[in-house]
């Protein structure tokens, strides 16, 4: 930046010239406000509800079919069907109201996927009432526990992923 003390033109009488707003500041403010606005209105998708629960999606009826949506809830215990060969995963998502949506997902799920785990899936509800998921995320609870007697955390994942498809 220019150092005003070195030049004769910048005597104290001329200091008001320094009060002019620099283009750099204007640019910084424009970028900041723009980024802020984009994040609030664009990034948040004009909606702070990150996912719908099964009863909310089903309540939409036909307007909830074949539109991109996020669905979240709990993996219904005992509903997981996993085909190791084709990486085909099917399970049911349920919520506190007991409503259920069947989900089909391809690809290996995150390591923490298991019965009764919270999940959020991205995809579309088909007219066949099957939710076709393109992305599967784990919604972890706020609980952190040591394994119970005899449990091996790493082994648990393997056994969970093998049993249902077998």
């Amino acid at each position: 930046m220019n150092t005003p003390v070195n030049t004769p033109a910048n005597t104290p009488a001329n200091t008001p010239a320094r009060r002019r707003v620099k283009p750099g500041i204007v640019a910084a403010i424009v970028v900041l406000v723009g980024a802020f606005g984009w994040l609030i209105w664009g990034g948040l998708d004009s909606n702070v509800v990150y996912f719908l629960e099964p009863h909310e999606l089903l309540a939409k009826g036909v307007s909830g079919v074949d539109v991109p949506v996020r669905l979240g809830g709990q993996v219904k215990p005992g509903s997981v069907k996993w085909d190791e060969v084709s990486s085909d995963l099917q399970f049911e998502i349920t919520d506190t109201t007991g409503m259920i949506v069947r989900v089909r997902s391809t690809g290996v799920p995150p390591q923490m996927f298991r019965d009764a785990m919270g999940v959020v899936v991205e995809g579309r509800l088909g007219s066949d009432t099957l939710f076709h998921s393109t992305s599967l995320m784990i919604k972890h609870s706020n609980e952190y526990r040591a394994p119970k007697e005899g449990e091996q955390p790493k082994e648990m994942y393997k056994s969970l992923m093998k049993v249902p498809g077998a």
Partner: peptide
């Protein structure tokens, strides 16, 4: 602290 039962 032992490894967490879900995430090790």
């Amino acid at each position: 602290s032992p490894p967490d039962r879900d995430m090790g």
